[in-house]
Computed example of a mutant assay.
Amino acid sequence: MKQCAKSVAPKQDISFRKVVVTGGLGFIGARVFKQVSRMAHVAETVILDSVSYAADFRRLAPASEAGDLPVLRGDIRSRIDVAAALHEADAVIHLAAETHVPRSFADPELFFDVNVTGTETLLKGALEAGVKHFIHVSTDEVYGAVTDDVRETAPLRPTSPYASSKAMAEEAVMMAAQDGLNATILRPTNAVGTGQHAEKLFPRFVMRALKGQRLTIEGTGRQERTFLPVGDLAAAIGLALNTSGTDPLRVFNISGEEDLSVLDVARLVFAATGKNTGLHYVRDRIRNDVAYRIDDTGIRGLGYRQKSSVDRELRAICAELGARARRQPEHLRTRAE
């Protein structure tokens, strides 16, 4: 996949009549919606979301206290839904996607349909609507297993249906940029924070520990991931929105500062919850990359800096899920295996 060389201009005062956040009811999307809706130079922020199993309106609180939420229920694969959402839009932040890697092996067709076809439909709508800036949030997994920090010019070698679908979606963005769309591709590492769906590693481990259940480890548990606080990721996306460049396409890695193996995460969860419930090893998934390590010098050159930490996010997750567990009936609180 050919990538354009990056040439970034200094941050400018850019005004937007309307910014559309796809997947804005999701874990990352809700944080991005809050981030953008607070910007003085953004007149209106709208969410386009299919309201799938991973959506949750509660993630937008306290934004919802101000009145009706600007949420359009629609599918990015629908040209009609896309056209309605993008009417008079100046910018799109594209987060809507199927993201759970294990599920991608079980249902790859769904992942390619949503992540590739959906992105292509959205890009066509953006070109027709005259969108000034299209931000596509991808993933570091498009690089495949890498143990040395890679820059944005490294080849893409995805190893899962999820990562392959995201790489193909990037190709669609690159083609749209050649057709005149001003686009930015962001490749972040694993986001972590409160409000994340229970299928993801941190909330899954915390909930199992709080229930007295063993933590399930796939394979050896030595697979390593880099974790990025979700608020910092939202800030980086907001920074990209506010940055213009001379090239029609810019690509940025967004890395976290902490590399942790799955076993490291388990130990942190045991310490944070005060419950060492033990480990349960199972067969590894079909392909499970040993590590993803990326160099995010580019986005840091725009002024991005991480402010939170995994420890702070984990304590917040424990507080959130602990309060939820205490609201459950007594017979559901502890379910040891």
Rank of each mutant, 00 (worst) to 15 (best):
D13W: 01
G24A: 05
G24S: 07
G29H: 05
F33N: 01
Q35C: 12
V36D: 01
A40I: 09
V46H: 11
I47Q: 07
Y53D: 15
D56W: 12
R59P: 01
P62R: 05
D68I: 12
D68W: 12
L69W: 07
G74S: 07
V82C: 10
L86D: 01
H87W: 14
D90I: 03
H94W: 06
E98Y: 09
T99I: 11
N115A: 03
T117H: 15
T119P: 07
T119K: 03
T121D: 04
E128D: 13
F134L: 02
H136Y: 14
D140W: 08
T147Y: 10
T147N: 10
E152F: 00
A154T: 01
P161Y: 04
S164T: 12
K166M: 03
A167D: 00
M168E: 11
E170M: 01
E171A: 11
R187Q: 03
T194C: 10
F202E: 04
L210G: 02
L210W: 02
K211A: 13
G212M: 00
L215I: 10
T216F: 03
T216L: 10
G221P: 06
R225F: 12
L228H: 05
P229R: 02
A234D: 05
A234I: 06
A236F: 03
L241P: 00
P248Y: 08
E258D: 08
D259T: 15
D259P: 10
L268S: 06
H280F: 10
I286H: 10
D289S: 14
T297D: 13
Q306R: 09
R312S: 15
C318N: 04
E320D: 08
A323G: 05
Q328M: 15
Q328E: 15
P329C: 08
E330K: 12
E330F: 12
R335M: 15
R335D: 13
